[in-house]
Design a protein around this nucleic acid. Sequence first.
DNA 1: AAAAAAG
Length: 609
Amino acid sequence: MRTSWADSADNSANGSGNTNASACPPRGAYVPPHLRNRTLSSEAPPPPPAAHPAPLPVNDRVNHGGQVTHQGGYFKADHGRQQQQQGYGSSFQSGGWNGRGVGRERGRREVNPFENDEAEDLSISEQENTGINFDAYDDIPVETSGENVPPPVNTFAEIDLGDALNQNIQRCKYVKPTPVQRYAIPISLSGRDLMACAQTGSGKTAAFCFPIISGIMREQYNQRPRVARTAFPLALILSPTRELSCQIHDEAKKFSYQTGVKVVVAYGGAPITQQLRELERGVDILVATPGRLVDLLERARVSLQMIRYLALDEADRMLDMGFEPQIRKIVEQMDMPPPGIRQTLLFSATFPKEIQRLASDFLSSYVFLAVGRVGSSTDLIAQRVEYVLDSDKRSHLMDLLHAQRETGIDGKQGLTLVFVETKKGADALEHCLCVNGFPAASIHGDRTQQERELALRSFKTGNTPILVATDVAARGLDIPRVAHVVNFDLPNDIDDYVHRIGRTGRAGKMGLATAFFNEGNLSMAKPLADLMQEANQEVPAWLTRYAARATYSGGHRNRRSGGSRFGGRDFRKDGSLNKGTTDFHGGGTGGGYGNYGGGYGQGVTSAWD
DNA sequence: AAAAAAG
């Protein structure tokens, strides 16, 4: 049976190598629903087949705190050759509040990172730009655990961050700290290590940048080694994608404006020479992706021996299988000071227990902090699931986009972010949309860095209000005005789903997330249904039926599957799994909800268990 | 099996 024009187009266009995905129809072939005469396949999915018992996931990995192999000396005294290197210097002679040459940066005037904000203020409506909607932050559940957790603050004024930083906070129009900031900043300022679960878009970057900048300004780091052409940053911030590193860098520049604290970014796909030049001019905070940093370390253009602060953004991704070896190399096998000497801050919106266990290798007597997600688990993101066959996905997507265009989902052009599984799929879908008159761009790891950045810019400005993306765009990216996230292909991991839909409903604004589900996503049925239920979303009856089968299709292909879906729980509290050294089992210690002044009692909802 | 991250 032919279910849509997409099927008929399947054979005609694009005869090469296009396997199962339906090919694009010829130009202008899109026909809006009301002009068509067909039944949408999403109306009545086939019933799920008979149930069979699902195997229990095996989960008995125990990881006792890894031996830290630190290779001596944080300071090699004798690396001679004190070149009067032009440019490499200001960090040597400074210290104390604002003692770092405010406003002048080695002869080069510091660019005002707030300059463009004025222009944006005018182009974007008032309401759009007032930053975070704080009403949405009331009644957010917060959990802390660990020994002697420093109490939260209610205002920035309560914290002694220094004048320069306070001015930048004002310039950023931050009025009061978000929940994650209220807790994380005092904890970090007190010198404690931190593992924090908090949705991006809730002010996470500032939560780890403020204490780092403040700490660097406060201390007297006037003794840095002088090795020709080697940079000695005091803080390292790692993130899993280049675009995210750029974004963190941009934010950190704002926060450190006129503080004298120098922020440099290093990532792959861009010419290294410029990054090397920046590093030679001196660096206090280095923001980087792992690959490029390893390159710089091997070239001895960067040394980590002066690192006092290490922050991992999207920490669970950084410690996932693909990244873990590189991260261990950087953190444990180069010259970085060990936990306890440096301060380590881990942030992510999701934190599976297995990853928490790995992460504890990097931490010393840390505080665990979980802040209820601003987007996903509240009403801010309306989640929908629709049953759509692969062959119908394209036409169905265009129906959605078409309807959206007519109704104007939020007045003016809301942006739509479409996630697909593969890079090839992203290219194909982008082409298909463009050919059918939907202005789309695409971003994925096989495109050049230039193309990636162009696509992102074009999306942000609304020039191409549709962006087709792989998971490269799933995490951390702060794109205002994303009104709709479409999971054209569902991910295989519910945490990835959480991060993807988190691109909308940011900073307290509303968002919509639509997922296309079919028989190819059986393993997601239960986690998805559970997640939606916990978020008070309407779960279609057919999805509940699929979920009831509770398939774990073959063992533990999902290493993160296991218990608490929201990752909002300290794995150290999980007695049966915890045979390790750091057991804070007596959970009452200073943690819990006692410190929270806000209006929620024990009414912490299912999201936290 | 896929994506990301060095060149």
